[in-house]
Structure formats: structure tokens, C-alpha cells
Design a protein around this nucleic acid. Structure first.
Lengths: 362, 362
DNA sequence: TCGTAATAATGAAACGATTCAAGTAATCGA
DNA sequence: TCGATTACTTGAATCGTTTCATTATTACGA
């Protein structure tokens, strides 16, 4: 726009400057000209203020102010070879568990001077891979990932290129990657054990594709608990997805069942699923929680407490997860990613009304 | 690891190559060498495949594959002058309303070939400003922002530099910016009108600092409704913050009141606050919802439906908001941000049990 | 066989910051 | 006043792409 503009005599004096302000955003060179110093000096003012005398520093800062100069990050990181950015890939930003963790990670990252790029893989291996591509093109410093598909090869390749990864909410043999996770097997055990302890025997596990490690581990833990009671059984209900909606679908199926085949204790792989199941049961008024069937979720998101029937859950330390993930990544960056560490947190049972003991037979 | 490696005769043949793989990530130049073509040709293969003959294209692609070449985005955007990224600043990623919108925006952006950088200002004008700085350094294509502080000046400056902004969830006079929003005044009216229609007269509005536009508008709408009933009153309870926790604090205050001074209808500026209030009331068992006081929220997040007492709310079209915001931004980018548009959606009342009519005097 | 298009391929220049070896100015002790 | 430090400043080289004016190659009709 406004490309034609004769150099007539009507032009105002500070024209060149005006042009610059309008057209292009000022570069370090423009600042150098304005302040009548060399570009290197401007750079020093920005990066090593001690190396510059007060007098010139003032001049340069004034010029920066006047031109409204903003560093071009692309140029910086081209020179530096890497960005000041950390990639974070989570399976579902709609899940408060992940947003909570992401927030903690972001806070920790900002403290150490990095920004966090957040990607939502939506439980989709393809999207996940796309994000890895994107982050690789961006030359992120490192990657935090709560993987959905099988990404070990890709992460290995990244690491060979000097981009370390930390697995989040997923344990790894420390030989290949650092990781920070919560003991899902123990959590699954806790949940099922609690249902058994309150008298339930016909348990059901509701969980997305078992190909997801977390789901598999939680199920495994539950199986372990159930195996301790010979008269107990565990049915597995596959939910496609880990959302409230998916939970509602499973709930609708359950509602159609007769009381004899209804599980008397339901363990959902996360709170979203549990709330979905709860919605179905509550809406149809066919069965009551916890009288007809107990319900326990996983993650202990904020909304579990304020659910129709306050939801029992397994609490994970989201803040600690996010913070530690960043710390581990920082370690890898310093040590040159030679050694890896795995931090495993322990989950915690939170009992609420959805599993309270009832006057119960067997 | 493996830093020392004498050039003894035991070395394998493709050593130079091996070094390259280990050390540096391959550049377009390396690819050019490997494929025995000029750098420009490689670039053409990547950007204008039609300009290159099949033969050389094959050679280049093979080289890319072999070296594991990954474009360096920093270099690209240094040359291009801008990134392929859109900045999005929201006040609270813990609020499902915003994540939902962000997701919609992200989806729409990916379709048009851009990535979205998500920033959480945490309702803090300082953080908000920091994100604007960051995005400006990153030379984002454009900015979607749900502003907390007064950012008009900054956005104006950005626009002058060719970076357009779209205000999200906040209307603007179309003279300066495009915006996409929901009529908050109408929403506030809807909510208060509904409480009045179901017999409530002593209303309370719970909302964060009124300095936030959305809060102010919703309150204004509520006032408008209340003014229509001479015997109705509206009390304003300031919550510091818009979170579940803030709501719980307000709720605890309410619980301490005698029944005469307890509002019989509470309108919270968003669902998080409402759920917090609900938690307090439910935990102490002092007052019941909706018998002693009705409760209505705003946003209609997924969790409203599965609350202890299913929460009435005002629904906003989050998907449409996010999608439209990206569309408006795309328009600005095409037209050179000359003209601006404001899209205003209409909110919708969703009635659930938390406001159901009770056997009630006047 | 030659001239003329069309088609491919080339490689230098530019983008904007950082780095660093080299140069200049100021300071100080003798 | 000189030489030696120290304190600042300079500006060319560099990072990895894309662009584009040239040059090389090929194809085709006369």
C-alpha cells in the first residue's frame, strides 16, 4: 500500500525516518545509525551492558526507544542455533490434569528464561508426529511429551541432534530418556483396592484404548488388587477416548443393563470419563451412586469435588510433575544429555461420596 | 559422549558424513552437496517442486532423506520477515471456556497453515504485556487476545508495524480493531431475568474485579433486568479472581450469613466461580441449592452439567468464537488490515436444577 | 545446421542478530 | 613524556533460508 510517493519538495523533513517507522520494523542497524555507533555496540548494550560506557549506552537506549526497536527473535536463534523455547505435547488440553501440569511447566520454564510452546495431540499419533516436526523445525531447546503413539525412535533421533526430551506422565527406562511420572500401577491398585475394601466385588474398569500406557498401567494395578480377592471380578469396558463425552457413552450402555449385570464398583481411567458416566446415570435416574454402583475416577481434577456426587479419585501431583519435568530437561541441557533420570511420584487416594460404603450384602 | 576418536586407519569410510550426522543438523547446503546441485535448487524442491525436473528432484529428496534434513524455521522467517505463527493470549487456561476456544482457534489456524502460540496471562496485566513482547519478538503474523489490562495502545503500535490483532471475547468499536465476542450485557440480562422469573428477588452478583470488561458488562445486563422489578435488589460481591477457589471464598462468606440476608438468587460471572460457591454451600450443609438460594453461572462449561447440583448457565459458542477469530485475522492479513469487523454472538440460557423453581413466597 | 524459445539449474545477495579479532582512546605509573 | 594497561568500540563474518537475475541446457521448427 501507498507505494507511489514522489520525492517532491512538499515532503516533510524527517521523511526517511517516517518511512522507516511506517514500513519496516526497525533493525539493530537502524538503531546503530540513529545512535551513531556500530551494530556490535548495540548488540552489546542488549546482551552485555557492562561492556559499554554509560554515555553510549544512554544514546543507544534512547535510539531504541525512539525507533521502537524490537529484537528479531528469528535472527537471534538463527545465529544461536537454537531457540529459547521448550515444546510441550499433551494428549488433551481439555483435560484439567494436563492444563494444570502445563501451567506448572510454563511457570518453571519462564523462571529459567524459556517460553513453552503447547501442542495438543488430541490422542492422535498423527497430530503428535506433526507437532514433533513443527518443534524440530523451530529448533526447540527440548521437548516435554506425554506420548500417545510410539515415538521412541523419533525422540532418539531428536536426541542425537542435541534436542533432549523428557517423558511426562510416562515412565521410561532411564537408559534412554529422562522421565517424570506417577506410579499408575500403584494408582490403579489404590482405586480398585478401595472399591474392594468398601464391599464391592463386581468391578468394571472404564478406559480408552489400552494401547495408551497410562491406561494399561492403571488397569494392571486394578487387576492386581482384584486378584487378591478370589470372589471379585473385573470387567473391562473400552471407551473410545478419554473425554466426558466418551464417558457418557459408556454410561448410557451401563444404564441399559439389568441390576444383576451392573458392576457395583466402577473405576474410570480418568475423571473426565467418570464425570461422563456419572452424568448418564444421574440423567436417567435408573441407578444411584454410590448405592447401586460406586464410582471412582483418576487425576482428582478440581471439578471432581463439585460433581453431582462428589467424586472419589486418585490424586496426582500436577504441579510437581510440571516443575520436575522442566528441571530434568534443564539437567539434560547442562550435562549434554548424557545421563538420564526417572522421577516417579506416588499417587494418593481421595475418598468422596461417590464411593462411600453402603449397607451392602457380601 | 564419544568425543575422542583418533583418525586412525581403523576408521570407517563415510566418516566425514558420520561426523556431520553426529554433530550438526544438516543444512540445505549439505543437502545440495550431497545431491550435487545448487542450494537454490534444493530450496526450489521444497517450495516450488514444479520448477525442478523429476531427475534432480529425486536426487534431492534422496539426499534430504539420507541426511535427515529438517528445515530451519528461524532462517526461513528471518528471510520472510514474519513467522507462520499466531499468538493467542487468554486470561486463564484453567478455565475450560478458554481452552475450548483456544482449541477451536488452533484447529482453524492449522487448516490455513499456521500454528498457534498459546499464552496465559493469568488475569495479570504484567504477564499479558510480557506475552505481547514475546510475540512481537517472534514476529507473529497476528494476535488474538482476550485482554485483561488496557492494551489498546500496544495493539495499535503492533498494527502500525503490520501485526494485526483481533479482540476475542471482547467487543471493540470496529474503527480500531476487529473483534469477536458474545453479547455479555444480553447474557447478564438473561441470567438475572431468569432468576427473577423464577421468583427470586434478593439477587447477588459475584464477579472478579469490575475493571474486567466482561464482568462489567454482565453486571450491567443484570442491573438492567433487576431494574425492571421495583421490588428486586442486586447486591454485588467482589470476588478476587475468577477461579473455583475465589468462588469458594465468596461461598464461605455467604454461609456465615443469616437466612434473612442471604441472597435468594446468585449470579456468578463465570461457572468456575459458581462451582466454587456451590462447593462451599454443599460442604457446610447450611443452605441448599436451589431451595434456599438459586445459582446460575456463565459459560456453560462441560462440568456445569455434572455439578453437585447441575448448574444453570449462560452458554457461549466457544467453537464459533475461536474459528471466527482466526477468520477475521485472516481477513485482516489479506486486506492489509485496512477495514475491521466486529462479530457479536448471542448467548443462550441453559436451565438446570440449580435454578429450578421452588415453592416460594414472593 | 542454426536460431529461438522454453525449461532447468546456478549462485550471489539479503534477512537481522551475535561474535570476536582488531583497532582506538583513556588512564596510570614512572 | 612514554609505554603499558585497561576500557570501549568497531565492523566483517556467520548462521540457513529464499529470491532472482544469469547462465546452461534442451527441444523444436525452418
Amino acid at each position: 500500500m501507498s507505494g507511489v510517493h514522489h520525492q517532491g519538495p512538499a515532503c516533510q523533513r524527517p521523511m526517511a525516518q517516517q518511512w522507516r517507522n511506517m514500513n519496516r520494523t526497525a533493525s539493530i542497524k537502524d538503531v546503530a545509525n540513529q545512535a551513531r555507533v556500530a551494530v556490535g555496540t548495540v548488540s552489546n548494550v542488549l546482551n552485555y551492558p557492562d561492556r559499554v560506557s554509560q554515555r553510549t549506552k544512554d544514546r543507544v537506549l534512547a535510539a531504541i526507544e525512539e525507533l521502537g526497536f524490537i529484537r528479531n527473535d528469528a535472527a537471534r536463534q538463527l545465529r544461536a542455533g537454537h531457540s529459547r523455547t521448550i515444546g510441550l505435547i499433551v494428549p488433551d488440553v481439555g483435560n484439567p490434569f494436563y492444563t494444570s501440569m502445563a501451567r506448572a511447566a510454563e511457570t518453571a520454564a519462564v523462571l529459567q528464561g524459556s517460553a513453552v510452546l503447547l501442542g495438543d495431540s488430541s490422542q492422535d499419533a498423527g497430530r503428535e508426529s506433526n507437532y514433533i516436526d513443527l518443534f524440530q523445525e523451530q529448533r526447540v531447546q527440548g521437548l516435554l511429551i506425554s506420548p500417545v503413539g510410539d515415538v521412541t525412535d523419533r525422540l532418539q533421533a531428536l536426541r542425537d541432534r542435541g534436542i533432549p526430551s523428557v517423558l511426562v506422565d510416562r515412565s521410561a527406562d532411564a537408559s534412554s530418556f529422562s522421565s517424570v511420572s506417577v506410579d499408575d500401577d500403584a494408582g490403579g491398585y489404590l482405586a480398585a483396592r478401595h472399591l474392594l475394601d468398601t464391599g464391592r466385588r463386581r468391578l468394571a474398569f472404564v478406559g480408552g484404548p489400552v494401547s495408551i500406557q497410562q491406561v494399561a498401567d492403571r488397569l494392571h494395578g486394578a487387576r492386581r488388587a482384584v486378584a487378591e480377592n478370589p470372589d471379585a471380578s473385573l470387567e473391562v469396558l473400552d471407551s473410545d477416548g478419554q473425554t466426558v463425552l466418551a464417558g457418557r457413552r459408556v454410561g448410557n450402555d451401563l444404564v441399559g443393563r439389568g441390576p444383576q449385570v451392573l458392576p457395583d464398583g466402577i473405576f474410570c481411567a480418568n475423571d473426565l470419563l467418570a464425570l461422563g458416566v456419572m452424568q448418564s446415570l444421574a440423567m436417567t435416574h435408573t441407578y444411584r451412586i454410590p448405592e447401586d454402583t460406586a464410582l471412582i475416577g483418576y487425576d482428582d481434577i478440581d471439578f471432581a469435588e463439585s460433581a453431582v456426587v462428589p467424586l472419589s479419585s486418585i490424586r496426582q501431583p500436577t504441579e510437581a510433575l510440571g516443575r520436575t519435568a522442566i528441571e530434568l530437561l534443564a539437567e539434560e541441557l547442562e550435562t549434554g544429555s548424557s545421563a538420564h533420570r526417572s522421577v516417579i511420584f506416588t499417587p494418593e487416594l481421595v475418598v468422596r461420596h461417590s464411593t462411600s460404603r453402603t449397607i451392602f450384602g457380601s
